[in-house]
Nucleic acid binder design. Sequence first.
RNA 1: GCGCCUGUAGCUCAGCUGGAUAGAGCAACUGCCUUCUAAGCAGUGGGUCAGGAGUUCGAAUCUCUUCAGGCGCGCCA
Length: 581
Amino acid sequence: MIKSINNHIDKFLASLDDIDDNQKGIIKNKYATTVTDDLKKGHITSNVCMITASVANKNPKELAEILTKMLSDSSEFKTVESAGPGFINVTLHRADFTSVVNEVNKNLINYGESSIGKSKSVQIEFVSANPTGPLHVGHGRGAAYGDAIGRILSLSGYKVEKEYYINDAGRQIDILTTSVFIKVFKKHFTDFFPTNAYKGSYIEDIGSIFIDKNNPELSVDVSLLKDDLPIDEEKEIDELILRIKKNEPSLWLNLKDFALNEVLTSIKDDLKLFNVSFDQWFYESSLGDVSDKNSQVAAAINTLKDKELAYEEKGAIWLNTSSSGDDKNRVLIRDDGRATYFASDVAYHKDKVDRGFNKLINVWGADHHGYIKRIEASLDGLGFEKEKLSVQLVQFANLFKDGKKVKMSTRSGDFYSLADLIKDIGTDAARFYYLSKQADQHLDFDLDLAKSDTKENMFYYIQYAHARICSLITKYEEEYSQLPESAQSISNGSYKSCDKLIHEMSKYPNVVARSCSALQPHLIIFYLKDFAHTFHSFYNDNHVLTESKENIDSIIYCLCGAKTVISNGLGLLGIKAIEKM
RNA sequence: GCGCCUGUAGCUCAGCUGGAUAGAGCAACUGCCUUCUAAGCAGUGGGUCAGGAGUUCGAAUCUCUUCAGGCGCGCCA
């Protein structure tokens, strides 16, 4: 029906001959015809007259009068009124208003879908945590967010590819390997453990499994490895890495692959538990080494050099990023010939664009925001439209348990992992609360609340509505065996208690669309909260199963739709609606 | 110092590309269970939308500025 009203609005705009086509284009882009926030204002509302007034410097109320008359004359709608500063409020004929119930019941899991994505391909890169240890709760928010926007974009007509970038090439992996190496040979190393090595218990676990499978032995004296290391923490670990690589080359490679694989497996397991899936796992190492002229890293840097954006200074290769607004230029290749993380990332983004995506979304921790300019500059330099890239920042979440802040990590290497969180409150509650606030803002995540059974716990409040509906439907099925296929007394207007619920239902597609264009899943959460409230209120005021058979049929048919809306909404967040509480 | 984010009820937060009397939960107070799940519903009180200026028919929303808080500014990843 919104489409029909917009058709009339098109004619209305066409009839205004003192406004030029350019202005009309602006108006068409800006105005909105939507479901009203409240039934008191009718069913559908449009602000087109106010937009027209501001663009063309006219009187909104006068325009509203004209449009009201046009819409009224069509007799397509029950009533049309101009209201407030110039809104057009349309009340639909009963059958049109209630038709959304049929629509929901017909489309089921597809209710809410749209084609705003126009089948464009979009790649979402998220989590991409260094494979040096298990995922912790800091990664959870990005995981929930990236996965949710993937689902929302898919439903909105985008072709979505979700990717995890594995930093398996840098120093961090060397430190991981070294840490495990020491644990494997802990008898030889006795108490020795470098300050900057990883200390979590998972390191020891990986070491134990490696011993079981390989029963390795050192071919050199351990003192050759650990004696006379530099005192500086950073230099100490770097020197140790070098010595192990040199003295135990095959063991090193073997152990490195093993450790990386173990950690990645644990990451994948956790993500699976968290109901997050990826289409691609991209290995940084596949970009090759800068020393190899045929590698992608070298190719990307050469391209930048050819364009005179990359240059040599103080023995290093720099990228001119400041010309694109960065604070200073950045190093691509260090003076010792090793590539920086940034160089790999430039090559990685070149690869992404070469794969032909229409749109790239990077989900990054908010602490990386200083990095955006840099990567944009490199895309610019490689001749790509930086508008294709959208970086979504995810702020840290502070977790509170027993009223106290949960420490993310400690020196000892112990931390509250994503797996711990899932064990504590479950995947669904965790995802829900991660997504309950705009991603780029600080989130205080109260674990006690997430487990509590009060109304304050929005998650259970919504689930409870779904469970109540399921319970009614089950009871109906026990009595009548077959679910109703229409809502007679609702569509003919003899039963109106569901009207508010129907009105809420009709808002859903627009919520999904907004959530899609803003990349904000939390909009769905707040919608569901309102929707659940509308249902609970209805449930209290109406005793469904003692109504007349005709009314019961209608209500149940309508509630099947309500159930679909809740489970679809939660589904977009990667959360399963529960049928019984 | 520079850059980004935030400031809405006592608390935690919504507020859709500027729009109709600024909303919800918690907390406080008052009602509602012999019938479908009370993890629920209905109601009352509570606001200088951090302060100031501007843009306009119209600002919590946009611009500027002040104040307060958070984060980022490596040849780390």
